[in-house]
Design a protein around this nucleic acid. Sequence first.
DNA 1: GAATGTAATGCAACCGGTTGCAAGTCAAGC
DNA 2: GCTTGACTTGCAACCGGTTGCATTACATTC
Lengths: 345, 345
Amino acid sequence: MKRDPDSGGEGRGSVVPTISQVAKVSGFSRATVSRAFSRPEMLTEETVRHVKEVADRLGYVPNQVARALSTGRHGNVALIVTDVANPFFPPLIRAAQLRADQAGLCVFLGNSDEDPAREELLVGRFIGQVEGLVLASSRLDEAHIRRYATRRPLVLINRDIEGITRVLIDTAPGVAAAIAHLAELGHRHIAYVSGPTTSWSNQQRRNAVRREAEKRGLKVIAVPARPPSYDTGRLAAVQIIASGVTAAIAFDDLVAQGLLAGLAALDVEVPKSFSVVGCDDVLGETTYPPLTTVSARCADAGDVAVGLLLSQMSGGMSGEIRHKLNSHLVIRASTGPAPVKRRSR
Amino acid sequence: MKRDPDSGGEGRGSVVPTISQVAKVSGFSRATVSRAFSRPEMLTEETVRHVKEVADRLGYVPNQVARALSTGRHGNVALIVTDVANPFFPPLIRAAQLRADQAGLCVFLGNSDEDPAREELLVGRFIGQVEGLVLASSRLDEAHIRRYATRRPLVLINRDIEGITRVLIDTAPGVAAAIAHLAELGHRHIAYVSGPTTSWSNQQRRNAVRREAEKRGLKVIAVPARPPSYDTGRLAAVQIIASGVTAAIAFDDLVAQGLLAGLAALDVEVPKSFSVVGCDDVLGETTYPPLTTVSARCADAGDVAVGLLLSQMSGGMSGEIRHKLNSHLVIRASTGPAPVKRRSR
DNA sequence: GAATGTAATGCAACCGGTTGCAAGTCAAGC
DNA sequence: GCTTGACTTGCAACCGGTTGCATTACATTC
């Protein structure tokens, strides 16, 4: 009794028409009906017209699942992110969707909440019904990722694993520019407000800060904001001010924005007595004051990743690909000359 | 040659094991292997153990697509929103995902970009491979929605169609409270910065503003911000100031935030010489000054919608459901007493 | 007019699972 | 010892499409 026409929400008493019904009514075979939809050029125009007309009248729509089973192609891809609600992701998701749409693909979205176990669960659930996956900022360990990559085409965003196609938003140049910018403004002692330890982006940024600061003779302290959010950024303000630095560069814009709020609460004026730099440029000019930040065109990452996935799916892929997206510094109003002398109480 | 083991990214030369392989190796029938995974309680523990062990060794994973074909249940639902990048949606999406996850479902996400044609395309693509859909702020016309609802369980968010299960974020009380708040602060002439004409929420809010303003003898003008965004909000500032009102309530927080920026650019101090109220409370305290807004717990809408969808899918649904979510005013720092006298130049 | 080629359509196997029903096994009950 | 029933497993049909190959019809060529 698995196809009770009066339950399960499928039509009010009328069964969903299948290819066989259309075949019977139109007088052609199932094969012909199938071809009328998937390879009409094999048939007479007349036949196609007739079949489609009957199909329309019956309300027939080819069953995607059945098609997927016999062809092995389902036209689905999966995109897994760590946190939909982090403003870094929505533009990326949007771009990825758009690209997938153009190729006629549907996208599954998964939200791992930065939890590897959850991410693994999601991948497991998705992998059977997609043709390929994109993992953004994956927290899975390398072995797992490699295993999945043998089962399906797979593209990583902001995770650098040799042999796996990946799209990396290379913020190092932008971060270096930010440090240079601060140095030129006279800052000698700065803070890096760091993000998740397991994040490739965080390692990337932390190293870039260290390297460039060393080069220019700046002192850097690290202050954590974990998980990276408005709130943890705000909370970091006290510690940062207490440390006596005159500027901070944050793991991302959200943390920077929180930091701005935290500083405001402490009556520290930005940029007059303290400078703040963000990362990702996802908030635009909406902060107060408008944030100087490392702009990274994160939306592009989604677009490129799906593009690479597509070409990998169609088999037109030879070697491994390591696609880098560039970054640059956008100077707005949250950075200014170092205060002449910090009043240490 | 549709299953060429060396192409398509499926394993390095080794085919994906099917139920038949496991059957052959384990010595049991395909039926038994199937049951070992889907109804283990029908089998001896011993048998289950053995089958699973062989499956593990071979790397067998049940094929979701095949399962969906024979059972009619694919364990997928679709969620279509108008704009992932609008901060209203991410929390909603996240909540919906979470709820779906708990039920073991995968979610397809679609982005309609406020375009009915696009939305229709997406629904068409999804509907064949999901057990149910959630349409948030749908822009489809009623007839289409009704048609889809006969094919699959369907839940609407912020769209009020009789006979279709829907979740409505009722911002009217909050908006009324906002108008009352402004009236008490002495404002007599205010602006409503309106959103999409076809949006149920917009109609709801506009009416609530009118009603309450009339009741309190306030004058209201309408200024459009379309599509609703930071930029259109910013641009509306000039017109609003020119109109001589002393306060504005915006369609959503994003528009309100843009308005704040536009006002700042015009050197209008908020809340000293102008008051601004937002809607949705999706930005928290991150604006400058922190925004007085109508809080609506939009994340709940996602959770509730998927919950309703689930019960509808399991057939335990009798009549129609119209679930209302309440709203209230959150007073922060963007509203203040009306300026004693507006200097009209 | 027979041989050859080409285009349209049908046959039947297949994709990888699920499941109603029947068959077989074994212990308990009479 | 035979019947009964519970429990475990297998058989085979089925889900709704796709596709390699065979068949048929018809036009072309010699």
